[in-house]
Design a protein around this nucleic acid. Sequence first.
RNA 1: GGGCAGUUAGCUCAGGGGGAGAGCGCUUCCUUGACACGGAAGAGGUCGUUGGUUCGAUUCCAAUACUGCCCACCA
Length: 879
Amino acid sequence: MTEMAKTYDPRQAEAKWYDYWLEGGYFKAGEKGDKEPYTIVIPPPNVTGNLHIGHALNNTLQDILIRFKRMQGYDALWLPGMDHAGIATQACVEAKLREEGISRHELGREKFLEVVWQWKDEYAQNIASQWRKMGLSLDYSRERFTLDEGLSDAVKEVFVRLYDEGLIYRGKYIINWDPVARTALSDIEVIHKEVQGALYHIKYPLADGSGFIQIATTRPETMLGDTAVAVHPEDERYQGMIGKEVILPLTGRKIPIIADDYVDMEFGSGAVKITPAHDPNDFEVGNRHQLSQILVMDELGKMNEKAGKYQGMDRFDCRKQIVKDLEAEGFLVKVEEHVHAVGHSERSGAVVEPYLSTQWFVAMKPLTERAIRAQKNGEGVRFVPERFEKIYLNWIENVRDWCISRQLWWGHRIPAWYCGECGEMTVAREEPAECPHCGNNRLKQDEDVLDTWFSSVLWPFSTLGWPEQTRDLKRYFPTDVLVTGYDIIYFWVARMIFMALKFTDEIPFKDVLMTGLVRDAEGRKMSKSLGNGIDPMDVIDKYGADAMRYMLSTGCTPGNDQRFRFERVEAARNFANKIWNASRFALMHLEGTSEKDLRLKGPFSTADQWILHRLNETVRDVTRLLDRYDFGEAGRILHNFIWDEFCDWYIEFAKLPLYGEEEEPKRVTRSVLVHVLDQLLRLLHPTMPFITEEIWQHLPVKGKSIAIASWPEANDEFASPRAVKEMRTLIEIIRAMRNIRAEMDVAPKRQIELLIRSDQDVIGSISDHEAVIRKLCGVNRLTVDTDLKRPEKSVAAVVTGAELFLPLSGLVDIRETVSRLKAELKKLDAEVERVRKKLANPGFVSKAPAHVVENERKKGEEYKEKRDKVIARLKEIEG
RNA sequence: GGGCAGUUAGCUCAGGGGGAGAGCGCUUCCUUGACACGGAAGAGGUCGUUGGUUCGAUUCCAAUACUGCCCACCA
C-alpha cells in the first residue's frame, strides 16, 4: 500500500469522506424494510455564533450513538436544526448595528428583522459547515429552524390551545426586568450572584409626631414608591402603631402602617417598607391590603416622573443621592455591610429590576402535575446519571408561572390582536379579518414576541411535523435519547417533558444523557471575557476530527465536567496514527491476495486464537458499554485492545508467519489480520468515523461504507481460554527475558542462549513458539525441556509455568540475579501470606461465595509454586 | 439556608466489596523490514480524615475537613 503515507493525514481523509457519505445518503433515515427506528433530535444550537467545544462534546456523543445504532441495523434518525435564540441573537445584531451608529428603532421592525435574517443565514451556514467538519451523521433532509413555517404553526397551536384552556394568561405582575435589553425575563434567566452590598436603616417619622418607625432596605431608591410600612400582626413592639401613618421621607407622602404575617419579626427592626411596584413580596402584600402601586422607574432603569426631583437619574445614582439626602435630613440611622444575592440578566449581565409590568404567563401547576406524577410512577424519563432526576423533580415541583412575553422583535410574535375600537383582545392562530367582538377591522397585533424557549420546548415533536400527524411523527416520536448539558435542565429538558405530555400524551425521550462542561486546562469555565475558549475547528485543523472526538468522548463520565488539555488531544492523535500504521502493516501483507484467501479460516495458531478470543470479548464489552452511554470505558477498552494487544503482541507474533516461507500459516495469519482489523475498525467507527472509513476503504472487504457496515457481534465460537493461558505464559517469558537483558545491560543486538525448564502442561505451546521467542528475545540457541539442569554461571528467572536460564558467560553477575530473585520472593511471600490468611479465616471460607474462595485457592497455589521455584533457584545459586 | 458532586501515582482522570488502573510526565536503553505521533524495560499510590457494616472496605453507610456546582421572594 504505497499510497498510504507513514503518518495519518486527517485533512485529506476528512475532506473526502463526508461528501461521500452525503452522496450515498447514508445519514438519511427512512422506512427501510422492517428496521426499528432510533431517534435523536439535536439540541438546536443558537444562530448567534459559532459552535464551541461544548457543542463538539455534545454532538460527538450523539453521533457516536447514532452511528452505533445505524450499524446495529436501526433506522437511525438524527434530526438537525437551529434555534433563533431571541434575546441572544437580537443583542448581537443590535451590537453590530450600534457599531455602525444605527439603533433598531431607527430601522424599524421590518427592516431590522431583515438584517437579523441575513445574520441568521450567515451563521446557519457557518454552523452547518462546522457540523460537517466534525463528521456528524445528521439527516439534513429533515433540518429545521425554530422560526420556520412548520414550527411557527406548532407555536401558534400551542399558544392558542393553552390560552383557550386558561393556561396562558395576560396580566400585570412583578416580573424580572432587564433594563439593558429592555425586556422582561423569566425567573431562570436571572442569575443570582452574591454581592457585597449594604443594608440601609432608615427611620420613617410617624405622622402624628409620636416618634419613628425604623425600616431597613438594600434598595433605598425604591422608597420613592413605598405605599406602606408593614409589621408582623403579633409583634408586641408595634401593636400601638398599626393603623397609624408615617410620612415618607424626601417625598412627604403619607403611608399607612399595616400588619401582615409575611413580615419576619426577627429581621432587622421587624418593620419593612412595602413597595408593591418593585418587589414581588411587596406586590402580594399590596394586593392583600389594597395598596396602590407606584412605579418609580422607566424601562431603562432611570427614575421616572413619579420620583419627583430624582426624575431622570439612573437607579444607582439615585440610590447614592437618596442616601445622601436621607443622611442630610437625619433619617439615615446606619449603613451596614450586607452580603446578599442580586439578580443579573443571563444575557446582558445587567442587574435585574423587579418591575411591575403587563406580560403573558403560562400557568405551570396544571402542566407540571402530570409530569411529576409520571416521574414518580417510574413512567418518566431516565436520567443518566440518575442524580439529575432529583434536580429535575425539585424544580418542576416548585416552579412558578412562566413569563413568556419578551419586548423584542426577533421571535414568534404573540398571536393576540387588540381592537382599536372596542379594546377587546382576540387570540387566534391567524390574524382575524375583523374583531369578533365588534366587527371592526382596526386590529393591531401584540408587539411582543415569545420567549425563545417557548418554541424550543416543542422541538422533539414540532420538528417531526406536529401538529400534523405526519408519518415521521408517528414513526420517530417519542425519541430515544436526549443528549444535553446539565445547565439547561430547567430551561429546556423539564419544559419539553411537560409540553410533550400535554400535547402528545408522550414522554418525549426515554433517556436524558447529561453532559458536563468542558473547562480549560486549569479547570476554569471557558468564557469570552477570560479569552480561554477553545475553538473546536482549530483543534480539528491541528489534530483531526477523529482525535478531537476520541479525546472528548473518553475524557469524562456522564454529567461530569472535563478539562480540555492539549496533551490529551495529542494522545488521541497518536492513537489514530497507531491504528493507521497497524493497518498499513496489515495491508502491506494483504497485497496480491484474493478475497477468497482472506476468508477467516484455520488452522489457527495460539496467537490467532488468542486475538480472536480477545476480539470477541472486546466486541461484547464495547457494545455493552455504548448501550450504557459509557463512552469513556468503551474508548479505553478499544485503545487497550488495539494498542497493547493487537499491535504490541499479535502483530509482532504475526510477523513470523508473514515473513516466513510457508504458505498456509501465511494465509491463515492474513485472514485473521484482516478479520480483526475489519472488526476493530467497525467498533471504532462511531467514535472515529473518518480514519476508520479511510482505512476500511483500503480493505478488501465488500461494502460501500463502513458507516452502514454491520456492527460486530460477539461469537463464543471464538472463545479460547487455553490460548489465553498459553499466551500469558509466552508473554511472561518474553517479558522476563527482556527484563533480564535490560537489567544486565545486554546489548540489543547481541544474541544469547536460553534454556527453559517448562511445566508439562505448557511445554507444547512453548515449543510451538520457539521461533517467536528467539525473534522477540534475541535468542540464538534455545533449549526447551521439562527436565534440565541449571547450567553453571547462569542467570535465572521464574515465570508462571516455567523457569528460564541464561548462560551468560562473562556477563553473569550473580548478585544481580540474587537481588532480582529476592525482590520477586518478597512479593510472592506477601501474596502467599495474604492468601494463606484469607483461607485460614473460617468466616471467609464459609461465607464468601464459592467461586471467590476457589479463585483464591488457585491463586494461592500459583503463588506457592512460583515461590518454591524462586527459593530453589536461590538455594542453587547460593549453595 | 437547603441540595448535589469531587477528594485515587508528579499532573489530568477512570475504576469499583475479594490480587490498585490509563494517558501525560519521569528514568534507562533502542533509528529492529507498520509506526520516534514509535519500540523495550522501569520508578512512582497505606485510594482526604475518623468511625461503622462485613469473613473481607479504596469501593457500602455515617460523621468530618477541604474544593466546586446548583437551588432559595427574608427586606
